[in-house]
Design a binder for these strands. Structure first.
Lengths: 206, 206
DNA sequence: ATGTATTTGTGCAAATTTGCACTTATGCTT
DNA sequence: AAGCATAAGTGCAAATTTGCACAAATACAT
């Protein structure tokens, strides 16, 4: 045990472990090993053992890890042993696809409101939600105590919305807009930009 | 100069630099510095200078970097000074959102075919494309010499499709399905799973 | 022309991250 | 009961990544 903060690069791998373990659970496996898990993920077994050992002794020597138990532990560590309310901003094609995605709930997240500033979209359905006016977003997020947001608006609008989200007390933003945002240090932000991934791959292609 | 391979972690940052520089170009800036670029991206200026210096001397001391010139260099390095044909597999909500996204072309990519194995979707439009039957995907990708694919199918189908893509000669796969895939070592693969990002952030949230 | 303010590219050291390889513990077979 | 195979947890070394700090170069003001 140590008091030092656990490196973020380790935190980043835990959700990957959790995802793979959840899949194993659906395959009715009871036990796995760092080696098996590593083989599935393309990660060395030593790294998996060392990562997990940061948080406790979850395995049994000679046997491996009990999958259900380890899932529980990881959920607890990542704070997804609860369902987080999430605000989705942007009800364009991408926003609608996100609103319709069924994969959030069993991994700890639940969209509770969808916003857009286009008057033609406000009041219309987006999945099972009715699109709300972005104009009211700060008050509503405060009232609903929402702390996580997904941003699926055009890049040009992203910073403005992000500023409002911060004002509303949002603590984590997942930004789909292809731009870097300025947020206070104590607000977490992550980005999804498919083109970054594509360009990273074409580098290696003659 | 050195013959050693350039670390992938550096390659991963280049698209980020390119994106930020492109934005600067639209702001009619001519020149930037490693410091300014770093401030925008939350990266140290030393790292940016060192990253870029792996590929040549692109800056001018006392002045900085010419934005248009550096964009050209990065595009060349990343092989996006050309337009890559991309196959999109999956015409569900997400697939349609991807098909409709207008941000690929000016960053080096162009969807040229959309596939789905649902007979109700085949023949129907997805954005400006007509959905094609996945059944024929291998032959068509070979014929069209497509080398990059985006995979927006359910996790349960992803590995099967990936195997076909590999057989068809695809060299880079961007997988939106929340699962890890097995592909030969010489095929590049990248993943997008929003929940991984969300869980990475909730770790830090009490 | 000279001096000053910038900013790059880089050698070197610090910090971080990874992984080898070993000890310890467990279960199974004989 | 003993021996063997398996696999976790970990100390330590190797490898990788980051960043400090400085020389060299450039632009601009005086």
């Amino acid at each position: 045990m140590c008091a030092a903060a656990i490196p973020d690069i380790i935190i980043g791998r835990l959700p990957l472990y959790l995802r793979a373990l959840s899949k194993m659970a659906t395959e009715d496996k009871e036990i796995t090993s760092s080696q098996e898990l590593g083989a599935r993920l393309g990660i060395s077994s030593a790294q998996i053992r060392k990562d997990l050992s940061q948080f406790g002794e979850f395995g049994k020597q000679g046997t491996g890890y009990n999958i259900v138990f380890l899932i529980d532990q990881l959920r607890r560590i990542l704070h997804v042993n609860q369902i987080w309310d999430v605000a989705l901003i942007g009800a364009g094609d991408l926003g609608k696809a996100i609103a319709n995605y069924g994969g959030f709930l069993n991994r700890g997240f639940q969209i509770v409101a969808v916003y857009d500033n286009d008057p033609h979209k406000v009041g219309q359905p987006a999945g099972k939600y009715i699109v709300r006016a972005t104009r009211n977003i700060v008050d509503e997020i405060i009232t609903k105590k929402i702390r996580v947001a997904m941003l699926a608006v055009p890049a040009s609008e992203a910073q403005g919305i992000a500023d409002q989200l911060v004002k509303a007390g949002i603590r984590a933003i997942l930004c789909y807009a292809p731009t870097s945002l300025k947020v206070p240090e104590d607000v977490r932000i992550q980005y999804i930009d498919p083109v970054l991934h594509l360009q990273r791959m074409t580098y290696y292609m003659p």
